[in-house]
Amino acid sequence: MSTAPRRGRLRPTRIAALLLLIVPILEVMTLIAVGQAIGGWQTFFLLVAISLLGAWLIRLEGARAWVALTQALQSGRMPARELADGMLILIGGTLLLTPGFLTDIVGFVLVLPFTRPVARRLLETVISRRLIAQSPYLGMVSGFGDPGVGPESGRPDAPRRSPPSGGDIVEGEIIDE
Results as ranks from 00 to 15, higher is better:
residue 15 I to W: 13
residue 63 A to T: 10
residue 33 A to M: 14
residue 17 A to S: 12
residue 79 P to F: 09
residue 14 R to M: 03
residue 40 G to C: 03
residue 89 I to K: 01
residue 62 G to A: 02
residue 89 I to P: 11
residue 94 T to M: 15
residue 25 I to K: 01
residue 77 R to P: 03
residue 16 A to M: 12
residue 34 V to H: 11
residue 36 Q to N: 14
residue 80 A to F: 05
residue 48 V to M: 12
residue 21 L to Q: 08
residue 30 T to V: 13
residue 75 S to C: 05
residue 93 G to Q: 08
residue 28 V to D: 02
residue 52 L to K: 00
residue 69 L to R: 02
residue 54 G to P: 09
residue 59 R to L: 11
residue 36 Q to E: 15
residue 81 R to P: 01
residue 93 G to A: 09
residue 12 P to S: 14
residue 52 L to S: 02
residue 76 G to A: 07
residue 40 G to N: 00
residue 71 Q to D: 01
residue 94 T to L: 14
residue 15 I to H: 03
residue 50 I to G: 10
residue 85 D to Q: 12
residue 88 L to K: 01
residue 76 G to W: 03
residue 19 L to W: 10
residue 86 G to Q: 05
residue 68 A to T: 03
residue 29 M to V: 07
residue 81 R to F: 10
residue 76 G to Y: 05
residue 78 M to K: 08
residue 40 G to V: 12
residue 57 L to K: 12
residue 26 L to V: 12
residue 55 A to M: 12
residue 87 M to K: 02
residue 77 R to Q: 08
residue 80 A to G: 01
residue 95 L to A: 10
residue 92 G to Q: 05
residue 13 T to R: 04
residue 88 L to A: 13
residue 83 L to A: 04
residue 15 I to T: 13
residue 73 L to F: 02
residue 44 F to Q: 07
residue 39 G to S: 03
residue 63 A to M: 09
residue 54 G to F: 05
residue 51 S to A: 15
residue 32 I to D: 06
residue 94 T to N: 12
residue 32 I to A: 10
residue 30 T to Q: 11
residue 15 I to P: 00
residue 38 I to Y: 10
residue 28 V to M: 15
residue 95 L to E: 00
residue 94 T to V: 13
residue 70 T to W: 10
residue 85 D to M: 04
residue 50 I to M: 15
residue 71 Q to N: 03
residue 45 F to M: 11
residue 46 L to M: 11
residue 41 W to G: 09
residue 18 L to G: 14
residue 62 G to F: 01
residue 70 T to N: 05
residue 90 L to W: 13
residue 74 Q to K: 15
residue 59 R to V: 10
residue 32 I to Y: 02
residue 55 A to G: 05
residue 74 Q to F: 04
residue 78 M to A: 09
residue 59 R to N: 04
residue 59 R to C: 02
residue 86 G to T: 05
residue 78 M to G: 01
residue 49 A to V: 00
residue 13 T to W: 10
residue 41 W to P: 01
residue 16 A to G: 02
residue 43 T to Q: 14
residue 61 E to G: 06
residue 27 E to P: 06
residue 14 R to E: 11
residue 50 I to Q: 11
residue 34 V to R: 09
residue 57 L to M: 14
residue 88 L to H: 04
residue 37 A to I: 11
residue 96 L to G: 11
residue 28 V to W: 15
residue 28 V to N: 08
residue 39 G to Q: 07
residue 60 L to E: 12
residue 90 L to V: 06
residue 84 A to S: 04
residue 96 L to I: 13
residue 12 P to T: 07
residue 63 A to G: 07
residue 63 A to F: 09
residue 62 G to V: 02
residue 24 P to N: 13
residue 27 E to G: 07
residue 30 T to W: 06
